[in-house]
């Protein structure tokens, strides 16, 4: 029981991070129907900007201020990355054949990974824990269930970011424009919505969310390298598909589920096969629910 609770906490924390990245995948998929393979690497860029900013601020005594600066700087830089990637690698291919943007995205992903490797080195970079300690929730026969402050902070930040994001998508003109372009880009353009601008903003927002996830990943694990984007990206993409690609709540749900599957599989079965478990469950879910958990069921128009 206590052990299960601990895995639940760990799984939810990890799942929040996956969920944040998954939103970027699902937004881009929803609006231009492509798998943005480079998104996981934008997450990695976010983590790196975080570590660079935090290193630059060594000596600053106020941890919250340092974190705030790291989050904001990372979100801005990643927003620029997302914007530029779309402009350079995807926009020229919009409306083209569907495999071309996919390959372009894979190319972009290779570029980003190797660019960081070349410019910042292939070594793992580590930072000390900035928010140490935690609260003991339960002590059952010597097994201590810990909720670290870091985990609590991740959950709170994620919920705050998601709340702001939900408000943005559901209540603002920008959100309306995004949903309109997603439904029918041509019609939206005819009605005077600047689709180029809307798509750019989608990339910027998705990348900023990935930046948040990246900085939180850095804080949670304390170690990053240029390759973290691949694994996290594939997991988050899996989360987006599991939840039903195109569905924003689905992305978060899928992320949480994948975090939980990983945590529980590691806790009760073998750590080695946790990723295999995630992928197998994805395949099984899709067999029975071909559009994911919350995806719109595609009606065959004849």
């Amino acid at each position: 029981m206590a052990y299960a609770l601990q895995q639940l906490i760990n799984g939810l924390t990890l799942g929040m991070i996956y969920g944040l990245i998954a939103i970027g995948y699902t937004m881009v998929y929803g609006i231009i129907g492509m798998i943005n393979f480079a998104h996981g690497d934008v997450f990695m860029i976010g983590a790196f900007v975080g570590i660079i900013v935090l290193t630059a601020l060594t000596g600053l005594t106020s941890v919250p201020l340092g974190l705030l600066v790291a989050f904001i700087a990372s979100a801005i830089i990643c927003g620029v990355y997302g914007f530029s990637i779309e402009r350079v690698a995807y926009r020229p291919l919009r409306g083209s054949f569907r495999l071309a943007p996919l390959i372009s995205a894979i190319g972009m992903s290779i570029v980003l990974e190797n660019y960081v490797q070349v410019s910042q080195g292939a070594l793992e970079r580590a930072i000390p824990s900035l928010i140490p300690g935690g609260v003991t929730l339960m002590n059952q026969g010597g097994f201590v269930v810990q909720l670290s402050w870091m985990q609590l902070a991740i959950v709170i930040v994620t919920i705050a970011v998601l709340a702001g994001f939900t408000y943005l998508v559901t209540k603002t003109p920008l959100g309306r424009a995004m949903r309109a372009v997603e439904q029918d880009a041509k019609m939206a353009a005819l009605l005077g919505i600047d689709t180029d601008r809307t798509i750019s903003l989608t990339f910027i927002i998705g990348s900023a969310l990935a930046a948040f996830a990246g900085v939180m990943f850095l804080l949670y694990y304390g170690v990053i390298d240029f390759y973290i984007g691949f694994n996290a990206g594939i997991k988050a993409f899996t989360a987006a598909v599991l939840g039903g690609i195109g569905s924003l709540p689905g992305a978060v749900l899928g992320g949480l589920l994948i975090g939980l599957i990983e945590a529980f599989w590691s806790g009760y079965a073998t750590v080695a096969y946790k990723d295999a478990a995630v992928y197998s469950i994805l395949a099984i879910v899709l067999m029975f629910m071909p559009s994911g958990l919350l995806g719109r069921h595609e009606v065959e128009k004849v």
């Binding site: 690698a89 020229p92 943007p101 894979i106 190319g107 972009m108 290779i110 990974e113």
Partner: peptide
């Protein structure tokens, strides 16, 4: 990677 992107474009 750059070549992939450029050739596709």
């Amino acid at each position: 990677g750059l070549a992939l992107v450029i050739i596709m474009i």
